[in-house]
Each structure stands twice: as C-alpha cells, then as structure tokens.
Design a protein around this nucleic acid. Structure first.
Ligand SMILES: [Zn+2]
Length: 441
DNA sequence: CGGATTTGACCAGCGC
DNA sequence: GCGCTGGTCAAATCCG
C-alpha cells in the first residue's frame, strides 16, 4: 500500500540535486518497492496457506464438535464425573475429561435428541446454509454471552474483531462511573450480534467487551480471531460442562498461541476464563488481563494439572475496596472475593451453576485451528498492518488511560469510544441513584 | 448528502 | 403497583 511515499531516506536536497540523483533515487525506490512487493506477495501467499489451513481445521473442528456432542450425550448417561486425566493422551478428542463441580449446567441440553447434530452456530464463521443456525436454537430467552476482559492494549482488543460496529446506545451502569456502550454489528443488515463495552470498575485500563449472538454473514479474516474465540466460548457455554472443557482447551490454545507467537511485541496473556451465569444469561468471561501483580493470579487452584495451566476462577483479582461489593448487579455471579478462593463447588448458588473444569488434552486440531486463525491475524496483521492511526494518540483530557481501545478499524470509532467510555472524573458519582444515570430518566 | 454517533425517551423485567 | 435498572429506539446532531 502506498509504498512509503514518505521521503524517509531522501536526504532533503532533492530539489537542488541534479537529475542523476533523482534517477538514482527513483531506481532505489523502485528497488525497494519491488522488494516490498515481493514481501507482500510472500505474505499473501503465507496468509493464503494459513487461511486454507484454517478452513481445513475448521472443518475438522466442526466435525469434532459434532462428534463431541454425541459423545457427551452418551457419556453423560454413563458416568458423571469422569477422571483419568492424562497429559499425553492423543488424537481423539473424547479423551478430554471434565470435572464438573456443582450442578450440571444445562441439565437438559440435548435431552430430546441426544444424537442431534448440534449445529453449533459459530460466531463469525459464516453459518452453514443449513438454514436454522444461529443461537436461536436455544430456549427462547437464554442468550449466551461471551465477555472478554482485556487490557486496552491487549492484542485482541487492538486488532479488534474486524467487524464494523455501530453504536446504538450508551448508559452508565450503577456502580460504575464509566458508561457502558452498546454496539451492533453492521456487517450485515440482519446480523444479530451485539456487543457492549465497558471499563472495569477497579481498573479503568481494562475493557470488558461482551459479545452476544452469532454472525450470520462472512467475516473478514481479521474477524476470525475474535469470532473463533467467542464461538469457542459460546459453544462451551451452549453445550454443558464436558464440552466446556474442550472448548476451554480451545481457548487455551488461543491464548497460549497469542502469548507464544507474538512475534513483534511481548504480549502477555495469562489466560483464565470463568463461567458465570445470571439467571438466564450464561456468561463466560475470558480474562486476557495481565494481572501484573502476581498477587492473586497464579493458578493456585486445586485442580491444576501441570501441562495445561489455566484455571476457571472467579474474577476476584484486584480486590480494591471500591464500591464493588454490591455491584452484583447484572448477571455475573462472582463467588469468592477476598482470600480463599473457594472452589466453585462450595458455591451455595441454588440455580446458578459454577462449573470448574480442567482439561489436559490439548487437542492438536483445536489448537492448530485457533492458532491458524490467529496467526493469520497476528502474523499477517503486523506485517503490513494498518497501524491503527489513533493507537498512538493519548487522550489527555480526563486522564484517559488508554486510547487505543476498540475498533482500530477504519475509524468507525477509534479512541472516541475510549474517550467516551473513560470514567468521567469531573462528574461526581456521588449523586444519588436517581441521577447517576447519564441519560436515563 | 449519507452514514455514524449522541442522547433523551421509552420499554420491559425484576425486586420490594 | 411502583420504582429502579438494563437495554433499545430514534430524533437530533455531527462529520467526512
Ligand atoms: Zn455480524
């Protein structure tokens, strides 16, 4: 693209220099451009390959998920608590194990037709023409949500999800001075996907993005990352504990991939995810936050099997005595707050479930699928990536912590979102509940 | 002028 | 039933 028209190396005496010089420069430039082109082409090639691979993997993955559904259904009836955790198991994917603590997530999932092909609608992946896809296949009111918790400079946030989002609302939440923004996918006129972005209360540099719904249109490659991530999470959400585990492995793959292959920048992505559920909003939270202080982070979890270390733990990081305690508002069920992280099984929740699972089998397929998907973004992205123009800007007005939040896309909403989402320090949140709401009544 | 954002109004679910 | 709150709509506004 525009082959660096900037006169970087050009001395500056171009005007005064004789034509020869010009020609030389031209030549040089041509050479450079050529080289660049070659590079790009190579990259292109690579990307293509990757995409190919991704597609292939996607296929296999799909099949496996498929399979898994059946296996799970079958297994469910046989034994509830599986064991036999082997780190070096191989191939097959049903060897993944799950410890289901607490009560079963959706006890009736797939109850009617257990062998049902479970057409898991993959977020972001063009839904198969089989008509009935979408999440709509669920019980009416339950929409799974996937919320991603990430620092504003996390890769996933930076590269955004590749889609176009149109903002359609903004509100300030109760216990949080920072407003919450609502976006809708504009990739297709009828795309039902929504997302809401909000800054974390205890750490304003953390953005919590919650996705909901399934894309029903093809997405750009750059959207695949988020898509597969969320889809993995969603699928794990949709299909009970056991697949939970699998999907988790999936996610884990993603994370580890991100943290391992981030050529260029040192991304830090301690991975953790937690499943919570409000009354009817199963929500999974991927935590891509780098809880810098190793304080409460280390996976000090009972069930922690060497190889794959990620833990489903309640997000109790940073126990800032802020007014968070009562923020049990929406749906997130957060057990355990300060010290001892009580294993979810001790949760006294009547209806909500807390399933903590642990998997060991890093299914090569899952992994590679995710990896491929991501690599196409990261690998392909950083090369000639359109450096988010606004990523470098810093919003000083309110002491905004990070300006490069979402949508580094084509300026749909760049740091404006960040701006508007930043906590308004000037506005005292002390006002009574009545008007704490910015635009409500 | 068209598309995106802003922002007050409106609505539905929920707890009391 | 009332009030609160999260979520959405849509008119006004902004911006390229
Ligand atoms: Zn979409």
């Amino acid at each position: 693209m525009e082959a660096d028209a900037l006169p970087t190396t050009a001395g500056g005496d171009e005007e005064a220099a004789p034509k020869q010089d010009d020609e030389q420069h031209d030549e040089e430039r041509i050479k450079r451009t050529k080289a660049e082109m070659r590079e790009v082409r190579e990259e292109n090639e690579r990307l293509k390959k990757r995409l190919d691979e991704t597609m292939k993997n996607y296929e296999t993955l799909k099949r496996q998920v498929h399979q898994m559904g059946q296996i799970r259904a079958a297994k469910k009836s046989t034994q509830t608590s599986a064991i036999g955790i082997r780190n070096d198991e191989v191939e097959e994917m049903d060897q993944m194990v799950s410890l289901t603590l607490g009560r079963r997530l959706f006890s009736n999932i797939s109850s009617p037709t257990k062998s049902d092909p479970q057409n898991v609608g993959f977020l972001g992946l063009p839904a198969p023409p089989t008509g009935e896809d979408e999440v709509s296949r669920q019980n009416p009111p339950k929409k799974p949500r996937v919320s991603v918790r990430a620092r504003c400079d996390a890769p996933l946030v930076q590269m955004n999800d590749g889609c176009q989002w149109r903002k359609y609302g903004q509100k300030t939440a109760k216990g949080n001075p920072c407003p919450r923004a609502y976006y809708r996918c504009t990739g297709a006129p009828s795309c039902p996907v929504r997302k809401q972005v909000q800054r974390s209360v205890d750490d304003i540099s953390i953005l919590i993005t919650t996705y909901e719904g399934t894309h029903n249109h093809p997405l750009p490659v750059s959207a695949m990352a988020m898509a597969s991530t969320t889809s993995a999470a969603a699928s794990m959400l949709l299909s009970g504990p056991s697949s939970f585990a699998t999907a988790a492995a999936d996610l884990h793959g993603l994370n580890s991939y991100l943290s391992n292959n981030t050529n260029s920048k040192g991304f830090y992505l301690p991975n953790s995810s937690m499943l919570s559920s409000s009354l009817n909003h199963p929500t999974i939270t991927l935590d891509l936050t780098s809880n810098s202080p190793s304080a409460n982070y280390p996976p000090k979890f009972p069930l922690d099997f060497g190889s794959s270390q990620y833990s489903f733990m309640p997000w109790n990081n940073s126990n800032s005595g802020y007014g968070y305690g009562n923020a049990s508002q929406a749906g997130h069920q957060q057990f355990s707050k300060s010290s001892t992280p009580p294993p979810p099984l001790s949760s006294p929740l009547p209806d909500t479930i807390a399933a903590a699972t642990k998997v060991i089998t890093s299914d090569p397929n899952f992994h590679s699928a995710l990896a491929a998907a991501l690599s196409s973004i990261i690998g392909g992205g950083n090369g000639s990536k359109t450096a988010p123009p606004m990523a470098s800007y810093v919003e000083e007005p309110q002491g905004n912590v990070c300006a490069s939040s979402l949508s580094s896309q084509q300026g749909s909403m760049g740091f404006e979102a960040a701006k508007s989402l930043s906590c308004s320090t000037s506005k005292s949140p002390s006002s009574s509940p009545g008007d704490s709401r910015e635009n409500g009544k």
